[in-house]
Design a protein around this nucleic acid. Sequence first.
DNA 1: ACCACGCGTTCAATATACTGAACGATATGG
DNA 2: CCATATCGTTCAGTATATTGAACGCGTGGT
Lengths: 260, 260
Amino acid sequence: MRAHDGVRSGGAHVPALRRAVAILDHISASCDAPTLSGLARALGLPKSTAHGLVQAMEELGLLVRAADGTLRTGPHPLRWAGDFLARTDLVSVFRQSIAEARRFERFTVTMTVLDGGEVVYIACSDANRPLDVAFRIGMRLPAPFTATGKALLAARPDGALDALFGQGFPAPLTRYSVASLSDLRRELVETRQRGFSLDDGQIREGLFCLGATVSDHTGQAVAALALSLTRSEATPDTIATLGGALVEAAADLSCRLGGG
Amino acid sequence: MRAHDGVRSGGAHVPALRRAVAILDHISASCDAPTLSGLARALGLPKSTAHGLVQAMEELGLLVRAADGTLRTGPHPLRWAGDFLARTDLVSVFRQSIAEARRFERFTVTMTVLDGGEVVYIACSDANRPLDVAFRIGMRLPAPFTATGKALLAARPDGALDALFGQGFPAPLTRYSVASLSDLRRELVETRQRGFSLDDGQIREGLFCLGATVSDHTGQAVAALALSLTRSEATPDTIATLGGALVEAAADLSCRLGGG
DNA sequence: ACCACGCGTTCAATATACTGAACGATATGG
DNA sequence: CCATATCGTTCAGTATATTGAACGCGTGGT
């Protein structure tokens, strides 16, 4: 039995690789560019180990050394990141993420992106039970009435709303549909405070949805998740619980897309 | 003498890290997702070595394994790439500068940095019209063939070329690609006299690019801009006009980075 | 000017991770 | 239906890389 700490569970140690990742993480997390010794201290590495690693990482383009000797992340990871972005579609990540999170298997989970003033449904995990509105992939709905749309709009600067709805607000779908731009602004303020968005019968009476945004590696909200319930299920307790879980799920998805 | 190939000159070997980088490079370069054994064969690694590496890289988020067992690049490098792009605020300055300079909106404008003997694309403003080569961020090309690469090489002392290409000049991409180090030197002399660099079909036949360097506050050339045209558009008049405008834009960018 | 400190770098000894062969499981073909 | 090939995985031995201490060197303090 070793007294060594930091032993990983799964398989081989490959410490050099793990150290390299830790170095890059540290450099890209801290806002000041560290020096070699400072980096060794921060990560608890022997100086010479850090030296060897940094030298190799410099050769490989993982790090660059500024004129004053401080270390920065290098250009090489751009290649991998670009490949990941090219290959990854939101949808498959969504499916995998939802499949692992068993919390929502009783509900219909949807994902949309914003296109102009409308949301487009790009993925949908059907509930394990009957009823429930069938969301079809590719379907479009006016963003101001949907939970995902409100979440996405709330993530945008307020001025963007004028460009989208300044001349012409979508026609209401139900008598609960938000009716004007000023009403929408009010809802978006509440949404930002709450952390997730709500749609209480605005696209169909009796249908209650919660929404939260998914961000990519730049922090931009690129998509939104929604959970669909019936209005009678939407007690304050349920809303709070499921809302929190949804925000968590959205954050998890963001992580898988490279977000911090 | 080692029987091992690929022995690096400089410092420590850190083979695990080098292998990991090779794996990621291979996966992001090939268009089909390889399996573990195939990857081991492609890189000449023992199966078990590849197994241990892949397992660790999976834990670290550098790789993800699809449902069928094939390997893809993971989301983790996005963080590093994002940090690189954020710190080199070249990119944001680039976007702003290009957005304000309406002169180039008909053309694709790219920006690269030099990494060894290759240029890495760190930003790209797509043209408003179809055609045009799609430059992907993170893409690499041999510096001697590209307009940006020539601009950056021309800004370096002549002796630097020997270190980069003294033993091994990149293989030509087209029949117009500059073929030797001495030919490159000749082109660089012309480039310095002209004030901007040209690529006439050296990375792709029919593609014509103009390049100019961007300097930071220390006066060092840190990046280069390029303008992409079709060869038929590249009349002497157009070249002179656009070349001058590009040099101006690059100088403007340099100013914004603190250059005198 | 002197000294002390911190940084980056080098080198030999040891504790380490990588290698090669073998295993069970699964998919393929006769 | 069985034989074969290929895949992913495990394990002990050896060749390997990492470690700790020491060296120059530049910098800032007294």
